[in-house]
Simulated assay, not measured.
Amino acid sequence: MAGLMIDRVSKCFGEQQAVDSLSLDIEPGEFVALLGPSGCGKTTMLRMLAGFEALSEGEIRLGERTLASRELHVPPEQRNMAMVFQSYALWPHMSVADNVGYPLKLRRLEGDAYRRRVAQALSLVDLASHAGRSPQELSGGQRQRVALARCLVTDPDVVLLDEPLANLDRHLRAAMEQSFREFHRRTRATMIYVTHDQSEAMSLADRIAVMRGGRLEQWATPEALYRRPRSAWVASFIGQGSLLQVAAGRPGQRLDEHTLMHGLAAVASERVQPVLVRPEHVTVLPDASAQRGLRARVESVTFRGERHELHLRLASGESLVAYHHAALVEGESVELILHEGWCLEP
Results as ranks from 00 to 15, higher is better:
307 R>Q: 13
147 A>H: 07
132 G>A: 10
21 S>Y: 02
222 P>S: 11
116 R>D: 15
94 M>H: 13
121 A>C: 09
42 K>P: 01
257 E>D: 10
25 D>H: 13
329 V>L: 09
194 V>S: 06
236 S>I: 01
135 P>F: 08
295 R>T: 15
311 H>E: 13
268 A>G: 01
252 G>D: 03
344 L>M: 10
51 G>S: 11
16 Q>N: 09
196 H>D: 10
59 E>C: 14
219 W>S: 08
230 R>C: 06
118 V>T: 06
286 P>T: 05
322 A>Y: 10
13 F>K: 04
152 L>G: 00
184 H>M: 12
252 G>N: 07
234 V>I: 11
180 F>P: 08
247 A>L: 03
191 M>W: 00
112 D>K: 14
310 L>F: 12
105 K>S: 10
152 L>P: 00
201 A>E: 00
218 Q>N: 02
271 R>V: 13
25 D>M: 05
277 V>W: 07
231 S>T: 15
312 L>M: 08
178 Q>I: 15
125 V>Q: 01
346 P>F: 01
83 M>F: 01
331 G>E: 03
108 R>P: 01
320 L>N: 02
41 G>I: 08
306 E>K: 07
310 L>C: 06
306 E>I: 04
172 L>F: 11
234 V>C: 12
160 L>Y: 03
33 A>Q: 00
346 P>Y: 05
122 L>V: 09
64 E>C: 03
310 L>Q: 04
159 V>A: 01
325 H>Q: 13
58 G>H: 04
100 V>L: 05
167 N>Q: 13
251 P>Y: 12
200 E>R: 07
154 T>V: 15
10 S>E: 06
174 A>S: 14
102 Y>I: 01
151 C>Y: 09
250 R>W: 08
63 G>Q: 11
178 Q>P: 01
153 V>F: 07
2 A>R: 09
98 D>S: 11
8 R>H: 14
293 G>N: 11
22 L>H: 07
190 T>M: 08
261 M>T: 11
213 G>A: 05
42 K>Q: 04
180 F>S: 07
26 I>R: 00
177 E>Y: 00
334 V>L: 09
192 I>T: 02
124 L>A: 11
334 V>H: 02
147 A>Y: 12
103 P>R: 03
317 G>Q: 08
288 A>S: 15
288 A>D: 12
67 L>R: 08
141 G>L: 13
220 A>W: 04
238 I>G: 01
241 G>H: 06
251 P>C: 11
148 L>H: 07
32 V>P: 04
273 Q>C: 10
303 F>E: 09
282 V>N: 02
96 V>I: 13
12 C>L: 14
190 T>L: 03
258 H>G: 02
143 R>E: 05
14 G>Q: 08
217 E>F: 04
112 D>V: 10
58 G>Y: 00
308 H>L: 04
285 L>I: 11
125 V>H: 00
256 D>Q: 08
294 L>G: 08
7 D>Q: 15
315 A>I: 10
313 R>F: 02
127 L>V: 10
69 S>M: 07
156 P>E: 00
149 A>V: 13
329 V>C: 07
296 A>N: 13
254 R>Q: 14
239 G>C: 02
150 R>I: 12
146 V>I: 14
224 A>L: 10
86 Q>W: 09
135 P>W: 09
310 L>E: 05
24 L>F: 04
154 T>L: 14
6 I>E: 03
226 Y>F: 15
131 A>V: 07
153 V>C: 10
315 A>Y: 01
150 R>Q: 13
146 V>K: 09
